[in-house]
């Protein structure tokens, strides 16, 4: 191989690695499209979602099964969440969803608790049993006021 061919090869390699880096950043980190199985659109409505973000993970028993794809307000000013879940899941229609926080100040995510019903959640269905995000400040405020109440 001549020097020129080696150099061409190195340049080609450099461009390829750079492109892979850009692709990895865009798709895997940036979530240009959710890497992993999807296809089951499920909705859930909450009073309060706290700091939940788009692309926050959706887990069952701590195992990631999908992500939040849209956050919007519905007509009655409830927070309506759209999730994209693994289509192979067969979730009972009485499953419940909760917004939990990882650690004291960690990121928020949705945890689904499968129910016991015979009927399954269809694509586009809505989880009716939901548990709101816990807002740390309110919790602390309540604790303090309770403590105050005890003292009086």
């Amino acid at each position: 191989m001549t020097n020129t061919t080696i150099r061409d090869l190195v340049v080609g390699l450099f461009v390829a690695v750079g492109m892979v880096a850009i692709a990895y950043m865009s798709f895997s980190l940036g979530g240009l499209s959710y890497a992993g199985p999807g296809g089951l659109q499920i909705f859930a409505t909450f009073n309060e979602i706290g700091g939940l973000n788009k692309r926050a993970p959706v887990v069952i028993g701590g195992v990631k099964v999908g992500q939040v794809t849209r956050i919007a307000l519905d007509d009655e000013y409830y927070a309506r969440i759209e999730m994209d879940l693994d289509a192979r899941l067969n979730l009972p229609d009485d499953s419940s969803a909760a917004i939990l926080t990882r650690g004291l100040l960690g990121n928020q995510f949705i945890s689904i608790e499968p129910g016991a019903s015979e009927d399954l959640l269809e694509p586009g269905a809505e989880i009716s049993l939901t548990e709101d995000a816990v807002i740390m400040e309110r919790l602390i405020g309540r604790v303090i006021s309770n403590l105050g109440g005890d003292g009086s």
Binding site: I22, S26, A56
Partner: peptide
Amino acid sequence: GRYLTGIETVTTFEDDVAGSL
């Protein structure tokens, strides 16, 4: 795992990666 999840959850293509590129 949490380090990596932290990266993935906070990074979005539209807000961060596109601007960076």
